[in-house]
Design a protein around this nucleic acid. Structure first.
Length: 309
DNA sequence: CTCCAGGTCGTTG
DNA sequence: CAACGACATGGA
């Protein structure tokens, strides 16, 4: 990969093992919008909101373009967000060795990366995710952001000319996911008003414990993944699955292996051929895939979606 | 109108 | 400790 910086935009040219669309739309993050008109198959463009920033990005072939950003911002945030320094060639090889059934999906979907998201946003987002479908999760995240998050206006005139933005209105104004401080000012009714439903008290509990300092990102330093999971699960509304998602997506614990209803079905189809408890499946996967279990989970998910249902 | 969605909690056997 | 219904909301 080479980085080209023309003063306005940054291009990651020949960025291997990366597909913007697959990486955003595989269910690991919720704060983004597709902005192009979806007519060109070899092109896609998105607005991504993360890290108190708004980024317009597009991909053509293996070139990823980040618009209206700087090398400082890239190095301070986006490089890590897109997991740029991780060698996916090695990871995929190891996973195929552990599970040959995945060779085909991995070759067909070579560009899925695990994004490095912020802890607090990941925690709240995956509390919301329970018993909801992705479009609805995104809707709640957006409403919370509009209610309490920082407002950012983008100048999209140039991006329209470049066809990076090809959809009407609202795209120029964005709202960041609320910070802890912004969340702490919301009441349970505010959160309910964002359609969080029965998850509202769970979110309140997560915010309360974080504000109080009982469970913060720093609390996990020096803890094993098992210990970190136990700590996360003290939060109301955080069970095994949500905790594993927070570990994997928000705390960089790539050995975490979230088991949802889908993963249960997929693993039963490949390995167990019988009804198997989720904790057994999780233990089996972490044993088999080790430090790459979280990556394996992404490929397994696609494998299952294609094969089952 | 009924059923279910990338779960978790609280209550029963 | 395994099983089971409740829980908000919106879309199929």
């Amino acid at each position: 990969m080479r980085i080209i910086n023309n003063g306005k935009d940054i291009v990651l040219a020949d960025f291997a093992n990366f597909d913007l669309k697959e990486s955003l739309e595989c269910g690991q993050c919720f704060n983004f919008v597709r902005t192009d008109d979806c007519t060109d198959n070899s092109f896609c463009a998105y607005k991504i909101i993360a890290g108190g920033r708004v980024l317009f990005a597009s991909q053509r072939n293996s070139d990823l373009t980040l618009y209206d950003t700087s090398m400082e911002d890239y190095e301070a945030f986006w490089s890590n967000y897109f997991d740029v320094d991780t060698d996916y060639g090695e990871i995929k090889k190891s996973i195929i060795e552990a599970c040959p059934e995945l060779e085909e999906v991995i070759k067909e979907n070579p560009g899925i990366r695990l994004l490095n998201q912020e802890y607090f946003e990941t925690l709240i987002s995956f509390i919301i995710s329970q018993n909801k479908q992705i479009p609805q999760i995104k809707a709640v995240v957006r409403q919370l952001s509009e209610m309490a998050g920082k407002k950012i206006d983008s100048d999209v005139a140039r991006l329209r000319k470049l066809k990076v933005v090809n959809q009407d209105n609202i795209i120029m104004t964005s709202y960041c996911f609320p910070t802890l401080e912004e969340f702490s000012k919301l009441t349970e009714d505010d959160i309910r008003a964002c359609k969080a439903g029965f998850r509202a008290p769970y979110i309140m509990d997560a915010v309360r414990r974080t504000v109080y300092g009982e469970i913060t990102e720093d609390s996990f330093m020096g803890l094993s993944t098992d210990e970190a999971r136990q700590l996360l699960m003290k939060i109301k509304g955080v069970g095994e699955k949500v905790a594993n998602c927070v570990l994997l997506f928000g705390l960089g614990r790539r050995e975490a292996f979230p088991v949802d209803v889908w993963m249960k079905r997929i693993m039963e189809d490949i390995y167990f051929h019988a009804d198997t408890p989720k904790d057994k499946i999780e233990a089996f996967a972490t044993e088999r895939f080790g430090k790459y279990a979280g990556y394996a989970q992404q490929y397994l998910f696609i494998y299952g979606k294609n094969k089952l249902k």
